[in-house]
Amino acid sequence: MTGRSFDERDIHLALDGELPREDMPAYEAWLETRADMRALSARYESDRALLRDALAELTSENLPPRLQEGMIGNERAAKGGHALVLRRLGAVAALCLIAGAAFGFWAGRQQFVTGETLAALDVVGEAVAAHQVYAAEKLHVVEVGASERSHLVGWLSNRVGTKLIAPDLRADGFDLMGGRLLPSGGKAAAQFMYEDQAGERISLYVAHCIKGEDTGFRLFEDEGRRAFYWQEKGFAYTVAGSIDENRLLQLANVTYRQLLAGR
């Protein structure tokens, strides 16, 4: 026994292989007694794994021509003129990925900095209001029940004017109850309602909105009412519910994927 005491700093040392081997048993014994430190250690380890995975992709890429052995030594020439253009072209794929991330960050921040077009927010407001009204309903939650699923989906798709699906959220504990047609600024909107074993309800609301840039997920929160929404090709999609934010996000994620795949 070394008798030394440990603290958060040792988590980094252990993770980086810098903790003396003879201290390891005592360190591990200490970690056993500290759930908070154990969680922190696991967290740092998983962040590191994420980082390594993200960069592993790159290591398997082929070297760009300008970094290949034959080019080294001719770097000055290669750096000017058309090589620059080629490099720009070569970077398009990476730029696309950056575009997604950058736009996502940008879009995410806009929401909190300058707000966004009223039209899109109006739709989300409607979606949240419609959720509140119908999720609280005992007898007439839906207009057409889940037993007529294909009729429901076909009908709402026709009326709203885009190919819809009723996402299957059973893997996340939510069963389709059915759906209804709703007015939305002079056009038709669709609402699909879901319920879990505990009686919690969430809904997917699809309506026209002013055509703008497509967006990633955004969070709408207002006095305990919560929704994730995104915009795509002139439609706003909202997943609303009063459940835990992470759970709602997971459901929105699954919904998004299924809508994308079903198209």
């Binding site: 994420l50 980082l51 995975d53 993200a54 997604g100 991330a101 950058a102 840039e213």
Partner: peptide, 20 residues
């Protein structure tokens, strides 16, 4: 934004999120 391709997902975050 129209040039965006779908990133691979890894758990809650995707691999490009971590680089950002």
């Amino acid at each position: 934004p129209q040039a965006v391709s779908a990133p691979e997902q890894n758990g809650v975050l995707d691999l490009h999120d971590v680089l950002d």
